[in-house]
Design a protein around this nucleic acid. Structure first.
Lengths: 200, 200
DNA sequence: AACCTCAACGTACCACCGGTATGTGGTCGC
DNA sequence: GCGACCACATACCGGTGGTACGTTGAGGTT
C-alpha cells in the first residue's frame, strides 16, 4: 500500500542510519558533522531533515539499530534450555561479547547517556540489553540461585560491572588474556554470591 | 618571585575553572558555550585562551579539581587504621558518597570519557579515584581477605559496579532507599568473595 | 627618566556546524 | 492532464569555538 515502484524512501533512511552509525562509532557524536553523514549517505541535509527531526533523533535511530542487533544475539542464549544458573552464565558471556563490538561500546555505553540524557537512556535500555540483564537477575533470585537482593539495584550493578569488564578487554594491550581474566573474575563473583546462599 | 603586586593571573584562572565547573555540571559540556563561561567569570575569551589551549583543556582543569577534591575525602578513610577489610568497606561507602555529588557524577563519570576520550580518561583516573580502588583491591588480596584474582580486572569491574550503583542512586526516585540497596548489594557481593576464600 | 620587554588580558573577526525556509521534480489519484 | 503530495535538493541564518591582533601596565636595563 505505502510504496511507489520501490520503497526508495526507506532505503535512503537506512543509508542515513548506516552512515551515522559508522561515523558516530569512529569519530564520536560531537566530532561528526551532519555534512559528513549526508555526504557518506549520498544525499543532502534536506533528506536528513525529512526523515529525522535532527541530529539527536538520527543518533537515537542508530542507537536503536545497535541495540536491536544486540538483543537478537542475546535472546537466543538467555531463552535457551538448561538451568537458570547456566543460562545466566551463558548470557553474561554473550553480553561481554556484545560489549566488545566498537559500535555497541561507543554508542550505547559511552555516548548514549550524555547525548540522549541519562534518564532517557535508562528508559530506553529497559527494552534492550538492560532488560535482559534484569530478567536474568530476577530468574536467578526466584530460582533461589543467589541471595534475595533488590532486583533493580543488583541488575544495575551487574550491568555496570559487565560494561566495565568489556571496556577493560577492549582497551587492554592483550585482549585475549584480559578476556580470560574478566571471565574468571565475573565467574568468581557470581560463584561467591551463589555459595553465599547455600548455608542458609 | 613570579608575582606582581598580587597574583591576579591565578585568580582569574581559578574564576574560569570555577565558572566552567558550575556550568558544565548544570548544563553539560556540549550545551555550555565559552561565552557563558567567560561571562560568568567576568572576563573575556582572550583571558580564557591565554590560560587554556581551548574548551577541552578548560574541561580537564575542572576535571582535575573535582578529582582532587574527591581523593582528598577518600584518602583519609582508606588510609585510616583497622583491618584491610574494614578500611575497604569504609572506602566503598565513602566512594558511593562521592559519586552522589552532582559535579563528580556529571563531569567525572558521564562526560569525561566522552570529552577527553576514553583512553585519556582511563589514564587520568589512574592517579585519582580508580587508583584508590585498585590499591584497595591489592591490599585485600595481599591480606588474604578475598580470592587471588587479577588485580587490574577486578579493580576495573569493582569500579564499574560502584559507578553504576552511584548512578542508580542519583537517578532513583527515592535516593535514600536506593543508597541503602546499593550498600546492601555491594556488601553482599564482597561478602561472597570473602566467604569463597575461607574454605581454601 | 627614558626605553624596552613581556605577561595578561581585550576586541574583532572567521570558518564551520546545526537547523530552517523554500524550491523542485516525479508520481499517483481522478 | 492536472492538482496534490511525497521525497528530496538548495540557499541561507544564527551561534559557537578558535584565531589574529591590539592594548595596557608592571618590572628590568641603562
Amino acid at each position: 500500500m505505502r510504496s511507489r515502484r520501490v520503497d526508495y524512501s526507506e532505503s535512503t533512511r537506512q543509508a542515513l542510519v548506516d552512515s551515522a552509525l559508522q561515523l558516530f562509532t569512529k569519530r564520536g557524536y560531537a566530532a561528526t558533522s551532519l555534512d559528513a553523514i549526508v555526504k557518506s549517505a549520498r544525499v543532502t541535509k534536506g533528506a536528513l531533515y525529512h526523515h529525522f527531526s535532527g541530529k539527536q533523533a538520527l543518533f537515537e535511530a542508530a542507537f536503536d539499530q545497535v541495540e536491536t542487533a544486540a538483543i537478537a544475539k542475546l535472546a537466543n542464549v538467555v531463552d535457551g534450555d538448561g538451568s537458570a544458573w547456566d543460562r545466566a552464565m551463558a548470557g553474561i558471556n554473550a553480553y561481554v561479547g556484545v560489549c566488545l563490538e566498537p559500535a555497541y561500546q561507543r554508542i550505547v555505553i559511552h555516548e548514549a547517556p550524555v547525548v540522549m540524557g541519562w534518564e532517557r537512556w535508562r528508559e530506553a535500555e529497559e527494552h534492550f540489553s538492560y532488560g535482559l540483564v534484569r530478567a536474568t537477575v530476577e530468574s536467578l533470585i526466584s530460582a533461589g540461585e543467589i541471595e534475595k537482593l533488590p532486583v533493580e539495584v543488583t541488575a544495575r550493578i551487574l550491568f555496570g560491572a559487565l560494561s566495565a569488564g568489556a571496556e577493560t578487554i577492549a582497551g587492554a594491550p592483550d585482549p585475549k588474556k584480559a578476556a580470560g581474566d574478566v571471565t574468571k573474575t565475573i565467574t568468581a563473583v557470581m560463584a561467591g554470591m551463589r555459595r553465599a546462599t547455600l548455608p542458609t
